[in-house]
Design a protein around this nucleic acid. Structure first.
Length: 725
RNA sequence: GCCGGAGUGGCGAAAUUGGUAUACGCACCAGACUCAAAAUCUGGCGGGAGCAAUCCCAUGUCGGUUCGAGUCCGACCUCCGGCACCA
């Protein structure tokens, strides 16, 4: 069909090495598991191609050439007992007429099973048949049978492998299944004393009978070559290098690298999407649309064909066109592009969205990109994030951008997930909404059993929320009940962004209470909060709501200290994209405000300033987390409704000297065990701390009558006294 | 099977990266207010012993390094995720 033969591809494989190697460049800014998945997906494998000459069953050389296999273990080639090819391999197609019915039937069977994998069997059973063809091992000149095997994939490597059962698990299984000879040619390496280097002892060759011996286990590690002609005695590493070189020299092979990554098939048979701007002319062949006639526009309407062919093919006004080259009759390509094509470069387009002659102006793209921080779900780890990286490299090669990688840092936020219940006895999962399921739980809340209303026992899982699974939470409902701010605050507070969040409404009340506490406190101090007239005047300069250090000591001191510590904590956390801990820090500040017991009626001038500073800072820091409440409270503070932006508000400034404590608590340990705490001036010297610690009454109880061997002082933190006796 | 990641209270989670484990919140218990309830406020809240000061044990398990380990090293157990005949 058209789909098989006329797909449009982008040559991602051409960039496979760059896509893999450049990961090193961005690794530090990307989540580990995404980098790993990309590496696996690209799947670079270094090895060699080796050509096996083909003979007919009669032994005659019919000139049908050779079968090329890919192997990473050319050092094991003397152990090959067969060449196994995929059912779709050209050599099979070529010789179909010469095969027996039995062989033909097996080939059909394997092909059919591949097209229609009935079940996802964990362990697929090895299957295959000897075709009768022969292949000559170019190293040993041995004649080997050519088999068709269901475990060889046409899509990877060359679609043909040399089967070395003693040193490959799959070949081993295959050989056992069909009683093929198993010959060991790699021996585990040994130390000089004869002890095996490789920990596994499941494979060892009894030396005197190595030739006749059939192992009952395979050994897949590197080792020393045996039974390999002149190569015997070499290490795997050396043999791989030298045998590959020899193959290249003699012309029956070469070093080769293969990838799991495939070229990117971008053809889609849809009535929507970006058209592929190509026409097919009877005279000129495949001709791209003229630059000035771009973009090609899709018709408004297209019928569904039901045949798998693009609906656009049934729209003559679209399909029939003139050749951009000779102006003769021509047909348009009716496939449209994969949506990943668009998502590969939308972020560049954002920088220059109105440009009608270019995707993006190079200078503008260079100014804004690469993207400093990209955020998305880790479901895009391989698809979108590889395509976008590929696209960027192509743009770079076209001279549009000057860098290799589109996203310097990547954050994969976790998803909100919920419990799902389903019945899969029919083979398909039929989901039941949680409210229709009777659930029995143990003391820890773990599900013991789940039964549907009509009495069916159900399986359960925790999955990404979706309508079809019935485990979704309606955000509007949450907003209705708790408010948008509390809902948002709770989600941010409940867990680190990258964690999955199992939805549980229980905690959301805490967020509501916190916002209410802040709100109540601010209103209690309403009349005291307004900014001093000097600062309130509108100016182009941002308003600093935080005053530099003035007072030292006093009841306001503690509050100011907490305020400035909180500012630092929130600021640091936001810079590293942590959103749960800053919420905790702000809750602490709010608690300190209540604990301070400073009342508007009785407060001193310094206390009023301290409270104003604390509340204002809290309101400003809350802006990213609870924007509505924050704006409302801010209007109370500045006395107008223009909002933070118009008022030039800025994130509160933190002063190191104010954040610093007057007195710090120092842990005192004896032999590493906490025995006491002392309070000391932060400036106290190590010697002073040591003296205080040794003099402490709780400490003398533990050190009395014992010899002090040494004392470790960690500045600002602890003193550890090591005693003996 | 192979490859990653993670195991801390009843629960979600903190811990300045080797320095006072359990911050903050939820749930729970008690008290205040109330005719009562809700809301709010106050106190408690890892386990064990003790009237108490205090002591012992505890970050999946076992061992190691260190004055000191949730954090580093080794082995194992469990859970989650990815790949799944990739030659």
């Amino acid at each position: 069909t058209k789909k098989d033969l006329e797909q449009w591809f982008l040559k991602t494989t051409k960039y496979a090495d760059q896509l893999l190697d450049d990961l090193d460049e961005i690794e530090s800014g990307w989540p580990k598991n995404v980098v790993k998945r990309q590496r696996d997906w690209i799947g670079r494998s270094k090895g060699a191609f080796v050509d096996f000459d083909v003979r007919l069953a009669s032994g005659a050389d019919d000139g049908s050439g050779h079968i090329r296999v890919f192997t990473t273990r050319i050092d094991t080639i003397y152990g090959a007992n067969a060449v196994v090819v995929a059912a779709e391999h050209p050599i099979i197609v070529e010789h179909l007429s010469s095969f027996s019915n039995e062989v033909l039937q097996k080939i059909q069977e394997i092909r059919a099973h591949k097209l229609n994998p009935t079940d996802h069997q964990v362990e697929a059973v090895k299957d295959g048949i000897d075709t009768g063809l022969k292949a000559i091992n170019p190293f040993s000149r041995e004649e080997l049978p050519v088999w068709v095997g269901n475990y060889v994939m046409m899509e990877y490597g060359t679609g043909a492998v040399m089967s070395v059962p003693a040193h490959d698990e799959r070949d081993f299984e295959f050989a056992k299944q069909f009683g093929l000879p198993i010959k060991a040619v790699i021996e585990p390496p040994r130390h000089a004393d004869g002890e095996q280097k490789v920990r596994s002892t499941r494979f060892s060759v009894p030396e005197e009978q190595a030739e006749a011996w059939t192992p009952n286990e395979f050994f897949a590690d590197y080792g020393l070559l045996v039974n390999s002609g002149n190569w015997s005695g070499k290490t795997s590493e050396a043999a791989i290098e030298e045998m590959t070189a020899l193959a290249a020299e003699r012309g029956f092979g070469e070093a080769a690298t293969t990838y799991k990554l495939r070229d990117w098939g971008i053809s889609r048979q849809r009535f929507w999407g970006s058209p592929i701007p190509i026409t097919y002319c009877e005279k000129c062949g495949t001709v791209p649309e003229k630059y000035e006639d771009l973009p090609v526009k899709l018709p408004e309407m297209a019928p569904f064909t039901g045949t798998g062919e693009s609906p656009l093919a049934k729209v003559p006004e679209f399909v029939d066109t003139n050749c951009p080259n000779c102006n003769g009759p021509a047909k348009r390509e009716t496939d449209t592009m994969d949506t990943f094509v668009d998502s590969s470069w939308y972020y560049y387009r954002y920088t220059d969205p109105a440009n009608d002659s270019l995707p993006v102006e190079s200078e503008i793209a260079d100014f804004w990109t690469p993207v400093d921080q990209y955020i998305g779900g880790d479901d895009h780890a391989v698809m979108h994030l590889i395509y976008a990286r590929f696209w960027t490299k192509v743009m770079r090669d076209l001279g549009i951008v000057k860098f290799d990688e589109p996203f310097k840092r990547l954050l994969t936020q976790g998803m909100v997930v919920g419990e799902t219940f389903f019945d899969d006895s029919s083979g398909k999962r039929i989901y039941y909404p949680p409210e229709q399921v009777k659930v029995e739980r143990d003391a820890k809340g773990k599900i013991i059993s789940a039964i549907s209303k009509d009495g069916k026992p159900l399986k359960h899982a925790i999955e990404r929320m979706s309508k079809s699974k019935g485990n979704g939470v309606d955000p509007d409902e949450m907003v209705e009940i708790y408010g948008a701010d509390a809902t948002r605050l709770f989600i941010l507070f409940a867990a680190p962004v990258e964690n999955e969040l199992v939805w549980n409404e229980a905690g959301i009340e805490g967020a509501v209470r916190f916002l209410q506490r802040v709100w109540r406190f601010a209103y209690k101090w309403k009349d005291e909060l307004s900014v001093p007239p000097a600062a309130a005047g509108r100016s182009a300069r941002p308003i600093d709501h935080v005053q530099p250090p003035t007072t030292v000591g006093g009841s306001d001191r503690k509050l100011r200290q907490k305020t400035h510590q909180t500012i630092k904590r929130v600021q640091d956390a936001l810079e590293t994209l942590q959103f749960n801990t800053p919420v905790a820090a702000m809750m602490e500040l709010s608690n300190t405000l209540y604990d301070s017991k400073i009342e508007p009626e009785t407060a001193t001038a310094e206390e009023r300033d301290a409270v104003r500073e604390a509340v204002t800072s809290l309101v400003l820091m809350l802006a990213p987390f609870a924007p509505h409440s924050s704006e409302e409270l801010y209007s109370v503070i500045v006395g107008n409704d223009d909002g933070m932006l118009a008022n030039n508000a800025r994130f509160p400034k933190y002063y190191e000297e104010l954040a610093r404590a007057d007195e710090i608590e120092i842990a005192v340990q004896v032999n590493g065990k906490l025995r006491s705490r002392i309070f000391a001036d932060p400036q106290a010297s190590d010697a002073e701390l040591e003296a205080m610690a040794i003099a402490d009454s709780k400490i003398t109880e533990h050190t009395g009558g014992k010899e002090i061997i040494k004392v470790i002082v960690v500045p600002q933190r602890l003193v550890n006294i090591v005693v003996r006796g």
